[in-house]
Amino acid sequence: MRRLSAHERALWARVAASVKPLPGKRAPEMPVAAIAVPAAPAAPKAKPPSRPAPTSALAKPAVPPPKVAKPHPLGAPLDGTWDRQISRGRLFPDRVIDLHGHTVVDAHATLSSAILANDGTRVILVVTGKGRPDRPARIRAELMHWLERPDLRSQVASLRAAHPRHGGGGAFYIILRRAK
C-alpha cells in the first residue's frame, strides 16, 4: 500500500464532502492523510448491483450539447446522387487540370481561368498531388483558400475528394454551379 499524494488527498476531500451518508448512518471519521490506496488490485471483485448515482448540488446531469449543423464550406451540400457517383467511381469529369510542376501562382491562375471560363463545364478534376513528408503539397494546401475567394466561391457548388481511380487523396472534384 502507498500513501496518497497531496493532490490525491485534496481530490478525495472534495469527493467526500459532496457525498451524503445513507439515512440512519453517519460518515466514518477517517483522517484523510491516513487513507491508503492499494498499489495493484489483487483480484477482481464481484460487481455490486448498479444503483442510480446519488444526486448532489454539485453534480449536474450530463446533457449533450445540441448538435448544430455546420454550414458547408462551399455552399449548400449536394444531393446524395453526387456522393454515390463519387464513391462508386462513376463520376467522370468534364475537364482535368493537372497542377503537378506548377508554381503556386501559376496553379492559381490556371484554376481560376478554368472555373471562370463558363464553357458548360460542370465537374473539374484538379490533380494537386499528395505531397511528401519532406516536401508538403503547397498547391493542395492552398486549394481551399482559393475556392473561398469571392470571385470563385460564387461559381463553385462543392469540393469533394476524388475517387482512387482519379487520383484519390491527391485529387479533388470541383463541382460548379449550373450556369443561369
Rank of each mutant, 00 (worst) to 15 (best):
K130V: 14
S154Q: 14
A39T: 02
P150A: 15
R51A: 14
K20H: 12
L74C: 01
P133L: 10
G131M: 00
K180C: 10
L152C: 06
Q85P: 03
T121E: 00
S158D: 15
G168H: 02
L125I: 02
V15S: 06
K130G: 05
P54S: 09
R3S: 12
P66D: 13
G120T: 05
A114C: 15
S113N: 09
W146N: 08
I175A: 10
P38R: 06
H100D: 10
S56E: 02
E148I: 04
P23M: 06
K20F: 11
A13Y: 00
A53C: 09
P38L: 11
T110L: 15
S113M: 12
Q85S: 07
G170E: 02
M30Q: 11
A114V: 08
I86V: 14
L99Y: 00
A13R: 10
P31C: 08
P52R: 07
P66V: 12
P44A: 13
I35G: 03
W82S: 10
H163F: 08
P52Y: 04
Q85H: 01
E142V: 10
S5W: 00
M30A: 11
S154A: 15
G80Y: 02
V105C: 03
A10F: 00
G170F: 04
L176C: 02
E29D: 13
R9M: 13
P52A: 09
Q85M: 13
R153Q: 07
D83F: 07
K20I: 09
W12Q: 08
M1A: 08
G75D: 08
K130S: 10
R51G: 06
A40G: 07
P73H: 06
L125P: 00
P64T: 01
V96M: 09
A161N: 11
A107M: 05
A137G: 13
I86R: 07
A33W: 02
S50T: 03
A62N: 04
T121D: 05
A76N: 02
K20L: 15
R138V: 14
P64H: 07
V15E: 11
K130H: 05
A16M: 13
A141W: 02
P66G: 09
A57S: 13
A117K: 03
R51K: 11
S50D: 05
L176Y: 01
S56F: 01
L143N: 03
A43E: 10
R153N: 07
A34R: 08
P65H: 03
